[in-house]
């Protein structure tokens, strides 16, 4: 196995590690830190891809993910957490070990699903695709098990990270225009979510998504 492939594998494993850490972590600020760490990993993965293929646009893509995923979005989320005065997503719906056990099952499933695809694609990185898929599923799992809306947004962003990793490491990058479009989408989504949070809190005095289950009469359209 070449050194570059080993590096990608290492990054993939670390991505999986951060995904699991997100499942286990309850403090929102720490969750945001983990998200930023994922951004760093993605930047590194893109750099490796750029180095291997020599495509100049991948360097640009790395710069983009550095700015967006390591600096802008985490800063936004941190401010959000501070402004909304949230520290903990205390009561997860399912306890941590059970969640992680389900997570391990998901990893096995993801690998099995990815096995034929990566065999088809012919790239040497059979593990990386499985891990990318696994981190998408794990992020989904995190969104399911949390109560606070902010954790769900973080889960959404983590999901996007998994997809991005699949794109860079397995196919060595998407066309620049697609990438820019996604980046813009994510940014807009983050802003929209931010605005939503304030509206939710104004309406319910809380960010607990349980409150969305019982819509107050007449105000349904606001939410």
């Amino acid at each position: 196995m070449s050194f570059a492939n080993q590096l990608v594998d290492l990054i993939a494993a670390l991505l999986l590690l951060t995904s699991f850490a997100m499942l286990a972590q309850r403090r929102l600020t720490a969750l945001v830190d983990l998200l930023a760490l994922q951004g760093v990993l993605l930047t590194a993965a893109t750099l490796v891809a750029a180095w291997v293929t020599g495509h100049a646009h991948l360097y640009l893509s790395a710069l983009l993910s550095l700015v967006l995923k390591v600096v802008v979005l985490p800063t936004l989320l941190r401010r959000l957490v501070r402004r909304l005065d949230l520290q903990w997503d205390r009561e997860a719906l399912v306890n941590t070990p059970t969640t992680m056990l389900v997570g391990i099952v998901l990893v096995i499933v993801a690998f099995n699903l990815a096995l034929p695809i990566s065999a088809l694609s012919g790239t040497i990185l059979r593990g990386a695709l499985g891990i990318a898929l696994a981190s998408v599923l794990l992020a989904f799992l995190m969104m399911i098990t949390r109560r606070k809306a902010v954790s769900q947004v973080i889960g959404f962003l983590a999901m996007e990270n998994g997809l991005f990793f699949a794109a860079t490491s397995v196919t060595y990058g998407m066309p620049m225009i697609v990438e820019l479009g996604i980046a813009l989408d994510v940014l807009v989504a983050a802003f929209v979510f931010g605005i939503f949070f304030f509206r939710i809190r104004e309406t319910f005095d809380s960010l607990d998504t349980r409150h969305l289950e019982t819509r107050p009469a007449g105000e349904g359209e606001d939410v």
């Binding site: 590690l17 306890n95 941590t96 070990p97 992680m100 391990i104 990893v107």
Partner: peptide, 12 residues
């Protein structure tokens, strides 16, 4: 819970 996390990390 902390230790179970460690255990599952190792399994993973």
């Amino acid at each position: 819970e902390f230790l179970a996390t460690a255990f599952l990390m190792a399994v993973l």
